[in-house]
Design a binder for these strands. Sequence first.
DNA 1: TCTGGGGTCCTAGGACCC
DNA 2: TCTGGGGTCCTAGGACCC
Length: 416
Amino acid sequence: MIGLVDCNNFFASCERVFHPELRTKPVVVLSNNDGCVIARSNEAKALGIKMGVPFYQVKKFVDEGKLHVFSSNYTLYDDMSKRVMSVIRGMVPRIEVYSIDETFIDVSGVENIYQLGLQLSARVEKWTGIPVSVGLAENKTLAKMASKFAKKYKGYHGCCVIDTPERCEKALRLFPINDVWGIGRRMIKQMNYYGVHTAYDFTKWNRSRVQREFGVTGVSTWLELQGIRCIDFEPSVAKKSITTSRSFREEITDFESLSAMVADFAALCAKKLREQHGRTAEIVVYFRTNTFRTDQPQYSNVAKVELTVPSSDVRELVTAATTGLKSIFRKGYAYKQAGVVVTNIVNGVIPIDLFDPVDRVRQEKLLQTLDKLRGKMGDRMVRVASQGDCSGEINRKYRSHCYTTNLKEIIEVKIM
DNA sequence: TCTGGGGTCCTAGGACCC
DNA sequence: TCTGGGGTCCTAGGACCC
């Protein structure tokens, strides 16, 4: 059996851990630049606030004192996520972290899985303050479905198990097709056109029709819904590409500012690369003007820079990204977004190249020293000169403190 | 006036080769 | 000069996920 552990309203729940007085209040978390809503507590959902709405549309609730709002604080969420995953890791044989707020668990060989699910849910909440929903079933698609039942119905106490054909059919009949994992916008449109409204309706199709309409991915979802395992359990796979990108609060027109941002993105990519012990030989830089504005000339472009030897050296990555940017930058445009992608990531031993002018072993020692420094002093204290300090470019009006990762922002306990 | 920031996989089509 | 079927590799774009 496979399980899915899903944190409820994760970002909002993280904020609540440090604001217990908001435990029963409507809370939302905003995207970068405070642009739109990306997480909502149940009470905020009850107010009718939809996922992804622009903040200005719900600001009236805040002004009326009916809604509490936070800018996103990914440093905090990352750290809370690691804590949640570590509690879970200690209770099951294998886990596959799927996203910041979800992990699959392998529970094969466990005798009483329902008992385990309940214990998991209780312990994660007790030890981290984050409520979770657990779904257990034969494969990932059904486990996802089970976790949604666990979240929706209080009677499950945080854990729903789909373990018999009868339970499976009952669940499929109750489950809307648009909530099925792997069925997106395009497929939903087609499904509705053909009169498919529940997961059960879909399972009644024959295989060749599914193949014809939705291809191989459609077939594997269709099979999984019928209890056949198609999507493998893959514990801790290293990422194949890493992206760092941002929209800017105010559009950027000059090369120097854009270049400083891009250098920063490259540095962040280098950091993420080193965390997974990977190196890259290909750095992609891209940018675009504001596509929502019709009154300005539009320009977007992509540049690819290849390194002769795969590297995770922040200096090499920053240089490459800057070179790429130079080759495509044009004056006279107002840039709204930019990003750096590193792809073709390789992991493992340092490659030896006879013609490589750089002493890779010495370089690695320096980089490890920098990693340690960063760990002690924070990312913004240890930078490549060209990064500049662009912390002011991004709006974070309602940001909470980094309670768990920054000594200066740690919670103070006062004894009265 | 405001519109996220990450990822993965599949497919179609072009270039090139035999 | 035109005629053919296939194969591989690469890329861009789409679709999906959170």
